[in-house]
Nucleic acid binder design. Structure first.
Lengths: 184, 184
DNA sequence: ATAGTTACCTATCAGTAGATAGGCAAGTGG
DNA sequence: CCACTTGCCTATCTACTGATAGGTAACTAT
């Protein structure tokens, strides 16, 4: 039923993570799944509607993954490790985080899109804080959880950005080493 | 003599740091300084020529700043602090690092541009390593200098990225706190 | 049966992109 | 004085962008 619609968002997500939101055109997107660009407009009247859905889907998908990790009876360190692994999977595909990419292009997004982007980053940071506060004695640093969450998230986003240019995963690995050392 | 040429690169740099390389058009750039787009092509036959000059200038300008910092007879911690201050100035202007921005758009840059981008990040990381190795006993962590440099640089780049979306400087401040704590 | 909805299509639009051809005035060097 | 270069111009090109109008066949609910 929603076959083409979901194929569209799937293909669009990949294009944005690789080429950016500006690098996504209705025509190439339509070609990729074998329909016409006007049909893409049927599903997403304006490009910002597509942006909205992409950010929402990406956020929801990630939120589900994080819920699963949070529910496991494992150490805080292993939870953080699983969090970082999500970024490693993105790096492996030579992609950026969808929202990290759109963050670079924030100037051309409308207010609603920008708000969803903001919420994405805040959601990830909050998740880290909640995990720490659930197992506070497994934290080795005196750094406030909210501060730690902010450095960790932005650090991982930056590692994806720089690593993709330099062509290896050294920065992501270095971030991983740095942050995992802060947990018992 | 090179009046318009330097005005072009200056205006172009600002546009790229704000809107990205794709957000820079020869027409709007020309309008900004009051000439025609064809005249921009006189100075930079192709857009990649402009990209090359932007990255080169940005790298050279930063290298000079870093040379000055390195030459000062100050503590390692203060040198790192000065390094971070450069990023704070960028954040203050609500910009991204020029090369951080272009890193997000690396897919649409030619091989030469990509190499210059790579060299930019490696140069910054090398600077950090050199400063640490010149005053090694002022480092409080056992983390290898090259690892530390990689996390620091990518962390700062990511902080600029996320902070610009969220709308404050909390991540850059958090990164600063985290990294300065590693030096005596 | 029929009215409405869904999901596509063809055709087209105005706007903008990077890029090129060719001209023109001012300055420069032999 | 003349050839050449510099630095801009006008005019134009093709390609591509997001977006819209209007049509059509298939499905759906009354």
């Amino acid at each position: 039923m929603n076959d083409n619609r979901s194929r569209l968002t799937k293909a669009a997500q990949e294009i944005v993570q690789r080429n950016g939101f500006k690098g996504l055109s209705f025509r190439t997107l339509a070609n990729e799944i074998g329909i016409k660009s006007s049909s893409v407009h049927y599903h997403f009247p304006e490009k910002s509607d597509l942006a909205q859905e992409l950010i929402e889907q990406y956020s929801e998908h990630l939120a589900l993954e994080l819920d699963e990790i949070a529910a496991k009876p494992i150490s805080l360190k292993r939870k953080i490790s699983s969090f970082i692994k999500i970024f490693e999977m993105v790096a492996k595909a030579d992609n950026l985080c969808l929202c990290g990419m759109m963050a670079a292009e924030v100037g051309e997004l409308n207010q609603s899109n920008q708000q969803y982007l903001r919420d994405f980053f805040l959601m990830l940071e909050r998740w880290i804080v909640v995990q720490i506060e659930a197992q506070p004695d497994e934290l080795k640093t005196q750094m406030a959880p909210s501060q730690l969450a902010k450095t960790m998230l932005s650090g991982l986003e930056g590692a994806l950005l720089v690593d993709r240019v330099v062509g290896n995963h050294q920065r992501l690995n270095a971030q991983k080493e740095l942050y995992l050392a802060l947990f018992k």
